[in-house]
């Protein structure tokens, strides 16, 4: 926030995320701990990126910043061309709702709610009518192959199915990007494979950018681009887009 915001070129529409010298520090017992120490990267529309790193590397912090769940201590972050520093908490919530879909390791479904209503939840906060919500949620569930499970509750479904419901929920609002935090971490190999296949399919078919956060090298291998994070810094970026990927 201390970095002056310069006038942006009209490339906002082509990049999902643009981070410049992103830093995030926490106060722990009065001691300042830097989780991110200056990350600069650009993720374009429709990319499939894996953020890889050991635990404590700062990759979760990076994901929280990219997901607008948290704000950087300093540096600039643009999501879909919008500088998040200019947004108040309400506008930030609206940006999350419209631009970002989340998939979590532990699914985070509402336990007593049907798959259909779980998927429709983001649209509730967008003020979409009940009828339209249900129609869109139905379509999203069909897209992940769960058209026959709409009335089921999470407890009545397998882990793989639950994660597919979560993916449908991430997609229902037509986001620019899906942020998946260890999406296969709680799944067996077969279900993990299925979920990865689904994410790849959605990326290819719909052009939704997918940012995968994982410490699993095998999962990361499947992404076209890998960003290795270590000690709060980008250690290696395998395929930054040529246009604006030059390290600054």
């Amino acid at each position: 926030m201390t970095v002056p915001v310069t006038a942006m070129p009209d490339d906002g529409a082509t990049s999902a995320f643009e981070a410049v010298d992103l830093r995030r520090s926490y106060q722990l017992d009065g001691v300042s701990v830097e989780a991110l120490r200056g990350v600069t990267l650009t993720i374009g529309q429709g990319e499939f990126v894996a953020v890889v790193g050991p635990s404590g590397s700062g990759k979760s912090t990076l994901m929280h910043l990219l997901g607008c769940l948290d704000r950087p201590t300093s540096g600039v972050l643009r999501v879909g061309g919008v500088d998040v520093a200019t947004l108040d908490d309400t506008r930030l919530a609206e940006l999350r709702n419209e631009a970002i879909g989340f998939v979590f390791q532990s699914f985070h479904l509402l336990a007593r709610t049907s798959a259909l209503d779980n998927v429709a939840l983001p649209l509730v906060y967008r003020g979409v009518s009940r009828q339209e919500r249900r129609a869109r949620a139905r379509a999203a569930l069909e897209a992940v192959g769960l058209g026959h499970r709409m009335g089921h509750r999470p407890s009545q479904m397998s882990g793989g199915e639950q994660q597919r419901v979560a993916i449908a929920r991430a997609l229902v609002g037509d986001p620019r990007v899906v942020l998946a935090d260890e999406p296969t971490g709680n799944l067996d190999t077969r279900n993990g494979e299925e979920v990865m296949g689904l994410l790849e399919h959605l990326n290819a078919e719909r052009g939704v950018a997918v940012v995968l956060v994982t410490h699993d090298g095998e999962v990361a291998e499947r992404a076209r681009r890998q960003i290795h994070v270590r000690d709060g810094l980008v250690e290696l970026d395998t395929g930054a887009p040529a246009a604006d990927g030059e390290a600054r």
Binding site: F102, R169, G173
Partner: peptide, 8 residues
């Protein structure tokens, strides 16, 4: 809910 876009 907040992650999905619920405002304060």
């Amino acid at each position: 809910r907040k992650a999905l876009g619920a405002r304060q």
